[in-house]
Design a protein around this nucleic acid. Structure first.
Length: 592
RNA sequence: GGCCCCGUGGUGUAGCGGCCUAACAUGCCACCCUGUCAAGGUGGAGAUCGGCGGUUCGAAUCCGCUCGGGGUCGCCA
């Protein structure tokens, strides 16, 4: 080996050892006589001290520049007390090189590696191999490794079998858009990349594996978001002979362990609280609430049903809702803050945001106060528990608009009022989801979770009577406002599966064509089973407190799905297309 | 596909009709300097302002188109 010790691992206890190091010049401080070099490797940085007395090494130290690759031999020496650097993990020691060899020179990098400066993301991605040298960037990649390793070991210990499933599979038209891969052997035919190994893992259960998991790459050809990319990794897990609580218990143990070991703060509540979907929607307007803070919605319809204020009364008369968020002590919110929150509410679909500042028991600060009777105001105060000095933010609209707009307001408030800082990890389970939701444009039912999601026997009658009211065996684990796990107990007989497919508008022929394998397999002794899929990137983001998914991926793509590092996607030779039996449409061919 | 924001020396920013033959910081280069750790000092090189077109006596600054990036809605679990 060209090195025998990691620079970043050196501590006071290593004093006196002679070590051989290899790494990169992180920073250079040349005093003319004394030269200090910070040598960086995968584990951290250590200071080298070059003295003119060792002329050969000193000459090298004078000549080197940032990011040159060095091999250094020397003794680990305790620093004198006044020169100890408490800000460095290796700050109690330094190396006095007896020998210093330049293994490679380096151009000046296009951005700072030794300072945590925000650099244009595209430039970082183009030089990702340099970006990953930055300690604060690499740290998350190592974190990801440790978390994944923890997950694997946890599941191995509990008897899970890791099985790989194909990445070239059959395309199905519903759900997200598939990435397609043309077949050379059968021109005109295509594979799809899997959106998840859902069917394969169910088949593994039918095959008798009983406890399966995989860290599965999943692909969706859809536009990206800050927390969503085209290719991601999912902890895919499935168990046979289990009920909902069994899966949840195992997942909770796993994620509790991860959070305790890798979280940057404590877990707010263990065991994880459970919220019923309907209750959750009523209080937070979203099925993945951020529970690090309160600011729950309060239904204030009661006193307003016959209000003279048409915005409220009208919304209620047409089946809508009126809900408020009470913000303690913010009656003095500035005009500008109110305007910004109003804009956020509009972004969620609301036509406006009504505000009532409770300045004192006599005085209200509110553009709508003049439309409200004293009884109405008293009723609102009673329901919300508003005290003097509080601010009420109110939206009146259709239930889904109230939910989305007040959720947006609530989330913004959480950030603006500093309620999420240093709050650790607030997990919760959401259960009692509806099995199906109506797709107005398509005039059919769609699975809330996935089409294989099962339901309690007690819900069966709703499938015929009122499918919207059937609840399912779905369970989601949320943390700090992100859904990090979603799963369900699956349907395990052909009749129920056909029933659900039928409600989703699939004809017998379509069911046979798309899901025939599953339907057939269900008739050959399928065990009761269920499982989860958990996004690894979202988990790491939550643990690391990052809000950009690209930060937790070693080689991410841009938001438009391109790869600045490898310049992908790219045109291909005509010969390659010919081989696949493909022709480009005229306008796209011209671009190439 | 819609909407919003961004694109100025290597990097990060300022400048937002003439004072810009573009400023600041940092990096880079040279020299000085034996205890620094964002080392310090002196000097120097370095961008025509993403691209194209237009308005104007005059554009980095205004307008249009376009390319690239970021966010968001649609879409997506």
């Amino acid at each position: 080996m060209l090195k025998d010790t990691y620079a970043g691992d050196l501590r006071a206890s290593d004093a006196g050892r002679t070590v051989r190091l290899g790494g990169w010049v992180h920073r250079r401080r040349d005093h003319g006589g004394l030269i200090f070099l910070d040598l960086r490797d995968a584990r951290g940085v250590v200071q080298l001290v070059f003295n003119p007395e060792n002329a050969a090494a000193h000459e090298v130290a004078h000549r080197v520049r940032n990011e040159w690759v060095l091999q250094v031999e020397g003794e680990v020496r305790l620093r004198s007390p006044e020169t100890v650097n408490p800000n460095m993990r290796t700050g109690e020691v330094e190396i006095v090189p007896t020998r210093c060899v330049v293994l490679n020179e380096a151009l000046t990098p296009p951005f700072y590696i030794n300072e945590p400066v925000d650099v244009d993301e595209q430039l970082r991605l183009k030089y990702r191999y340099l970006d990953l040298r930055r300690p604060e960037v690499a740290e998350i990649i190592y974190l990801r490794h440790e978390v994944v390793r923890y997950i694997r070991e946890f599941l191995y210990e509990r008897g899970f079998t890791e099985v790989e499933t194909p990445t070239l599979i059959k395309s199905t038209p519903e759900g997200a858009r598939d990435f397609l891969v043309p077949s050379r052997v059968r021109p005109g035919h295509f594979f799809a990349l899997p959106q998840s190994p859902q069917i394969m893992k169910q088949l593994l259960m039918y095959a008798g594996v009983e406890k399966y998991f995989q860290l599965a790459r999943c692909y969706r050809d859809e536009d990206t978001r800050a927390n969503r990319v085209a290719e991601h990794t999912q902890l895919d897990l499935e168990m046979s002979f289990v009920e909902q609580d069994d899966v949840m218990a195992l997942v909770e143990e796993l994620y509790t362990g991860i959070a305790r070991r890798f979280g940057r703060g404590p877990i707010a509540t263990t065991p994880f609280p459970r919220l019923d979907y309907a209750d959750c929607m009523a209080r937070y307007g979203i099925d993945r609430p951020d529970l690090r803070f309160g600011l729950e919605f309060v239904d204030i319809a009661g006193p307003l049903r016959d209000s003279g204020f048409q915005v409220f009364a009208g919304a209620l008369a047409s089946g809508g809702e009126v809900k408020a968020i009470r913000v303690a002590g913010k009656a003095d919110m500035t005009r500008r803050e109110i305007d910004e929150l109003t804009e956020i509410a509009r972004g969620g679909g609301a036509k406006g945001l009504a505000t009532i500042g409770i300045v004192s028991s006599e005085e209200l600060r509110s553009p709508i106060a003049k439309f409200l009777s004293q009884e109405e105001v008293a009723g609102i105060k009673a329901l919300t528990g508003a005290q003097d000095g509080d601010m009420l933010l109110i939206v009146a609209d259709r239930p889904e608009v109230v939910a989305s707009s007040l959720h947006a307001v609530r989330t913004a408030l959480g950030a603006r009022l500093g309620l999420i800082e240093g709050q650790g990890l607030s997990f919760a389970w959401i259960t009692g989801f509806p099995l199906l939701e109506w797709r107005p444009g398509e005039e059919r039912w769609d699975a809330t979770h996935n089409p294989f999601c099962g339901f309690p026997e007690s819900e069966r009658h709703w499938l015929d009577e009122d499918p919207a009211r059937a609840s399912s065996y779905q369970y989601d684990l949320v943390c700090n406002g992100a859904e990090i796990v979603g799963g369900s107990i699956r349907i395990n007989n052909r009749a129920d599966q056909e029933k659900v497919f039928g409600l989703m508008g699939h004809s017998k022929e379509q069911q046979e064509e798309r899901f025939g394998v599953v339907l057939d397999a269900l008739e050959y002794g399928a065990p009761p089973e269920g499982g989860i899929g958990g996004g690894i990137e979202r988990l790491i983001m939550t643990l690391a407190g990052k809000d950009n998914i690209r930060d937790v991926i070693a080689f991410p793509k841009t938001s438009s799905g391109s790869d600045p590092l490898m310049s992908a996607p790219s045109p291909v030779d005509k010969a390659q297309l010919d081989e696949l039996g493909l022709m480009l449409a005229p306008q796209t061919a011209a671009d190439a």
